[in-house]
């Protein structure tokens, strides 16, 4: 069973997933016309800064099982379809119960194309329409760094584990210190500089 998996150290904060998500959930599904629609479409994935701006994290619904939001919804507006948790906007009364119990703070209240002048629970629908047509979710498709993947979870974890194992032996073989947690590349280089810059705001100030 494939699902969306986030690899946080690959996220570079470009927010293209937010845009792709907004377009996918607009009426026209077209970036040029979607910006003129009312109500305006909005993302259901949120790229948030970490403890400071050097890190970013794409936060979205995890489609939990059991899902606290589904269990607490008093009107039965939240339901499950092939392991994806969905909201029926016509049944939502905007009581906020789902948002209160969601451990990830990924539910927002917005007008939807079907329900206007009323704010209903809106969240990631796993791009269920796309999946049913054999496509991958919009956020996954747009992410070029591999921070948002769509695959079998255990398969990805196995691959990550294999990579890790290789690095462990590299450390032994080459006898030099290798950061086993992070790949070294130009983005890390920039992150280090940004972290240094950030530290000037707090630490050097004795």
């Amino acid at each position: 069973m494939k699902s969306v998996i986030i690899i946080p150290d690959r996220c570079i904060g470009c927010k293209q997933c937010e845009i792709a998500c907004s377009v996918e959930h607009s009426k026209s599904k077209n970036i040029y016309s979607s910006v003129f629609e009312t109500p305006k479409s909005a993302p259901r994935i949120f790229v948030l800064p970490g403890d400071h701006s050097c890190f970013s994290f794409p936060n979205k619904c995890r489609h939990c099982d059991p899902a606290p939001c589904l269990m607490i919804c008093p009107t039965g507006a939240i339901y499950k379809d092939s392991s994806i948790i969905l909201v029926d906007p016509t049944r939502c009364i905007g009581c906020r119960m789902c948002a209160m119990v969601c451990p990830f703070y990924v539910i927002r209240y917005r007008e939807s194309p079907d329900i206007v002048e009323r704010y209903v629970a809106t969240k990631c629908d796993g791009c269920i329409d796309r999946i049913k047509k054999g496509n991958i979710p919009a956020c996954v498709e747009t992410c070029k760094t591999g921070a948002i993947l769509f695959d079998d979870l255990n398969k990805i974890l196995k691959e990550k584990g294999l990579n890790f194992a290789k690095k462990v032996f590299l450390v032994q073989k080459e006898g030099k210190k290798i950061d086993v947690l992070q790949e070294k590349n130009c983005y890390n280089m920039l992150q280090e500089l940004k972290e240094k810059l950030y530290r000037t705001m707090v630490v050097e100030d004795e």
């Binding site: 690959r10 570079i12 904060g13 470009c14 927010k15 070029k144 590349n185 130009c186 983005y187 920039l190």
Partner: peptide
């Protein structure tokens, strides 16, 4: 945006915009 911070995005022409994956 990390692409922009790294200088890896290009929106000079209409075949793009393009960005290069730093990883």
């Amino acid at each position: 945006c990390g692409y922009c911070e790294l200088g890896l995005s290009c929106r000079n022409c209409a075949m793009g915009p393009c960005r290069i994956d730093p990883f």
